[in-house]
């Protein structure tokens, strides 16, 4: 598997994603600059976390117009896998690769471990997980409140596009376990074609016990299983 990691001015989880792919998964990764116009044969594209363009205007709004994003959109339209993590999720929404928007948290910036529940396994990021599996990984964001119209949310639920929800230690989505006020406790979704996935938590920062959790591994192993299938 070859993973292209897009580096925008202000990205800061690009190295974490690279480390997760190369050191933990022993697969190939390539760093792609936002001004590049070639994905260098990447099977999977990761839009990493950070503060692209200083989060000016709205988080992700300006990164969307980077030259490389044209290639990312083409890759996605061809069915190629695109994963947006945190700021990458915001960028994917702003680029209309994913529905909805990520607004300012209901309680300000949050950096803490959260528990998310896997809702579906028919996506490239959850193929190796099980439905109902609870994973602990960190979040670190100020704008992660997933928002869409009630009609759009109903459509997402019916189509099985909600992949992750914030839950408590018993695996139940509660107000208490929702760190940012996301509608319906949504932590991650996919597009209708199921090849573009976005999530606010950071699986790349939960790859080994030293980091406090290795629950992110199953998501990266899912990518590998999808690409090799």
């Amino acid at each position: 598997m070859k993973v292209g990691i897009i580096r925008f001015p202000g990205s800061n989880c690009d190295e974490d994603a690279w480390f997760a792919i190369v050191n933990d998964l022993r697969e190939q990764a390539v760093m792609l600059w936002h001004k590049d116009t070639d994905l260098q044969g990447s099977d999977v594209v990761i839009l990493p976390g950070g503060f692209s363009y200083g989060d000016y205007l709205r988080a992700g709004a300006i990164a969307r117009f980077s030259p490389i994003m044209q290639q990312v959109a083409t890759h996605a339209a061809r069915g190629g896998v695109v994963i947006g993590i945190c700021n990458g999720f915001q960028i994917a929404c702003e680029a209309h690769l994913l529905p909805g928007a990520l607004l300012r948290n209901d309680v300000g910036y949050r950096a803490m471990p959260v528990t998310i529940r896997v809702e579906r396994t028919d996506s490239p990021l959850t193929a190796a997980a099980t439905v109902g599996q609870c994973l602990t990984m960190p979040i670190a964001h100020g704008e992660g409140r997933y928002t869409a119209s009630e009609d759009d949310l109903d459509r997402l639920e019916q189509a099985g596009q909600v992949l992750f929800r914030y839950v408590d230690s018993a695996g139940t989505p509660t107000t208490q376990s929702n760190p940012n006020g996301s509608m319906r406790n949504i932590a991650g979704i996919c597009n209708a074609n199921r090849n573009v996935v976005g999530l606010m938590p950071h699986p790349e920062r939960a790859m080994e016990p030293l980091l406090g959790s290795s629950d992110g591994r199953v998501l990266f192993e899912s990518l590998l299983a999808t690409v090799n299938a």
Partner: peptide, 8 residues
């Protein structure tokens, strides 16, 4: 196109 988010 850019300045406002049509969703929110």
């Amino acid at each position: 196109k850019l300045l406002a988010n049509p969703v929110t």
